[in-house]
Amino acid sequence: MSDESTSNEFAIFVVKTTANQERSVANTMAQIARKEHFDIRAILVPDELKGYILVEAPDSGIVDLAIQNVAHARTVVKGQSSLEEVSHFLTPKPTVTGITEGAIIEVISGPFKGEKARVKRVDESHEEITVELFDAVIPIPITIRGDTVRVLKKEEKNA
């Protein structure tokens, strides 16, 4: 954390919002910034951060002014962040990262919710995995989205 920067520089400020209202707060703030000519340059709404949005601006006073009449925007979090600290939000990792063939997973949503299965194939480009359910009488491979599973055990040899 550093001191407030000059007008040519910028920092990332964190605004606390009501949960699930991050996008509407960002849209309203952008409208206000354009209308009132506030020096807000970008607003980042990563899905991983619930209840917070990241605002790129030269100083926190501008962000403070911009959220004054925005519904669901609460406060500007004290301190500031740098682009390096938030750059990982700009390139989200594929959801299948960390899932390997042979891993034991649990399906957490959809018709197979709660079922345990072994990973047969990982399709990183489509973010899908092909699994075989443990409880199925006949092992039929099913393809499901990578974000609908939780890894229980990593890469295990076939029993």
Partner: peptide, 15 residues
């Protein structure tokens, strides 16, 4: 998923 609103594309480091 995830959203970024670019207000000032010329000066934004994120843009």
């Amino acid at each position: 998923s995830g959203m970024v609103v670019i207000v000032d594309a010329e000066r934004s480091a994120i843009a």
